[in-house]
Every structure is written in C-alpha cells, then in structure tokens.
Amino acid sequence: MKGPFRLFMGCLAALAVLVAGGAHAQCESGSQLRGVNLAGAEFNSKAIPGRYGYDYIYPSAQDLSYFRDTGMSVIRLPFRWERIQPAINGALDSAELDRIRSVVDTARGLELCVLLDVHNYGAYAGQAIGSSAVPEAALADLWRRLAEVFANQPNVAFGLMNEPAALPIALWASIAQRTIDAIRTAGAANLVMVSGGRWSGAHEWEKTFGGTSNAEAFRDFRDSAGNFVFEVHQYANPSYSGTTTECISADSLRGIMRAATDWGRNNGHRFFLGEFGTASTEACLAALDAILGEMHGNEVWAGWTYWAAGRWWGTYPFSIQPTPTGPALQMSVIGKYL
C-alpha cells in the first residue's frame, strides 16, 4: 500500500493498538523512535539452550532506566529463536517467554517501546529457513505464537528476523510476506519491522544479488494493517560489516543514507535503521554524526537503534554501556539527536 491509502491504514492500525492497549502507543510508527540494541539474550549461540545468567542474559531494569533517562524511546531486544521455541512448530518455552515478558513489562512502566528481534540470520539451529529441516512456514508459526502473546500491546513491536543472510533475497521476501500475514491473522496490529534480505545493508538496498535486489523484491510488499517499515542496517567501516573500527568518510555515509531516503520517498515506504555503530575515534564520531543527521527529522525514517549496549560487552569498541567513569564517548554525538 502506498501514498494516502497506506497512511490512512497505518492510522487505523495505530488506533486499534490504542484501543486494545488502553495506553499511549509507545511503538507508533508515525513518530521517530530512537534508541539502542540491548544485547545479551542472543549471546553464545552455540550453547543452546544454554544456561541463563552464564551463557546469556536479558537487560536489567537498571539498563532500561539508564537509556530511558538519556531520552531514548525504544530498545531493540535481540534473542535466539532456538531458546524461545525449542522445537520447530512447537510450543514456546515458558521460562524464556517469562524473561521476555519481564523486559516488556519493565519497559512499559518506563514508557519504552520494545522491538522483539529474532536474531538468527535466517536460520534455525544452523539450517536455513526453506531447507528440509526448517520449512518456509516455520517462521510464521513462531510469530503467530509470539503475536498471540503480545498482540496489540502498545509498547511492543515485532522484528521478523535479523539479517536473513542464510537464504536468497527473493525467498526471504516471500517468507516475510507469509509471516506478516500470519501475525495479522492472529489479530495483532503491532508495528512490524521487515528486514531487508542478506545483511540488510542500506548501502546495497538497490544492488542485485541472485537475480533480484531488496528494492525489487519488497517494492510491492503488503500489510493488511498498514503498520510496517523496512529494517536496514548500516555500519561505517569500509566493508560495512561492523567488525572493524575504521570508518569511511562522513560524506560517503550521507550519500548512502540519502539514496535509501530517495527510494523510500519515491516508493511510498519507510525505513528503520535497526543497527549502526562506530568506535569512538574522531573520524568515527563524524561518521556517526553523519548517519544520525541524515535521519533526524526525516519522515522516511521511522527511527533507529544503535548497536549496541549491554552488561556483558566488556571492552567492545562500539558499546555505549555506561562505565564507572561515565557515559561512552559516542553518547556525545547520539545525545544531540535525543
């Protein structure tokens, strides 16, 4: 849906969330959400299910309060599919679900939106969605079950799949469509973040891989509730991988962001920058400022979540988790946009 009709449907969906939730729609797509990934629940993916508090951890109320007090309005909550659903098409794990519910409930009291992020790269237990081990409908089954739990909670948004690089773009687009349809059939009008295929890079949104691009595969994506945005990621190092601490020029990053903005505006779609992060060098802080500056006040961008924070990052150079010496240097830039 595009143009005025999509906007109208989005308003109806937001109204439905308000009526059902009886509270302020903290995950409203019409305003720009700004926040951080609070990582930890997706850690140690080879330790499945793993030991809670040893292999992986969820954010604390103190973590949530700190970032709320900086002016942030959303946290992206990465977690592992295998931990929340131990068997394909099976019931959700009650202990893991309670941990997610606890974060959501705490965030609601702080008026924070929680973006539930299935952090699995398009696979389950190392097998790609669409393989014989993981049927194409498996992700829709997971999200139907999650939607039944979190339907229309005003501070919960759904992130279908982090960086679905394990499968081709065209197949991912088809599975994403099937999954959002299942969410809506379950009666949930929540905001949904639909990741671009591969590594979801904004820099390659219009680049062709395997015969198609994200721009082509998702141009006519539809949502009966009219309440979705496309999630992209954009790191500042030369390979755009987010795995090294060098940064390309601020002007280059402005160009990347503007190209995505132009596509969204021309095609009646909006973006959410689910991951971006830099080290704290002068060049990288300039790069960070360029990315944030291009989104600020820009109607095409529904918001952003910086990568990352969390108690277990240690000396990770992108982390903005506060230390005993004070806030991370990156917050001097991020704070300008809160």
Rank of each mutant, 00 (worst) to 15 (best):
M1F: 14
G10E: 08
A13W: 01
A20W: 01
G21M: 08
G21A: 09
G21S: 08
G22C: 08
A23M: 11
S31P: 08
S31M: 15
V36A: 06
V36M: 10
A39R: 01
G40T: 02
F43P: 00
P49C: 10
Q62K: 07
L64N: 01
S65H: 12
S65F: 08
R76D: 06
L77E: 02
P86W: 09
G90N: 06
L92P: 01
A95R: 13
E96S: 11
R99W: 05
S102M: 12
V103F: 06
L115A: 14
H119F: 09
I129S: 03
G130Q: 01
G130N: 03
V134Q: 07
D141F: 04
F158G: 04
F158H: 09
P164M: 06
L167N: 04
I169Q: 03
I169C: 08
L171N: 09
I180G: 00
D181Q: 13
V192D: 06
S195F: 13
G196W: 02
G201R: 12
G201M: 14
E206K: 14
E206S: 14
G211M: 06
N214D: 12
A215V: 02
R222S: 15
A225D: 14
V229F: 14
V232F: 10
Q234F: 05
N237T: 06
Y240I: 09
S241N: 10
A250N: 02
M257C: 04
T261F: 15
W263G: 01
R265T: 11
T281A: 13
A287C: 12
L288P: 00
D289G: 04
A290I: 02
A290Q: 00
G297A: 04
N298M: 06
W301L: 09
Y306R: 02
A308T: 03
A308Y: 01
R311T: 07
W313I: 06
T315V: 11
P317I: 07
P322F: 00
G326E: 07
M331K: 11
S332Y: 05
V333C: 03
L338Y: 13
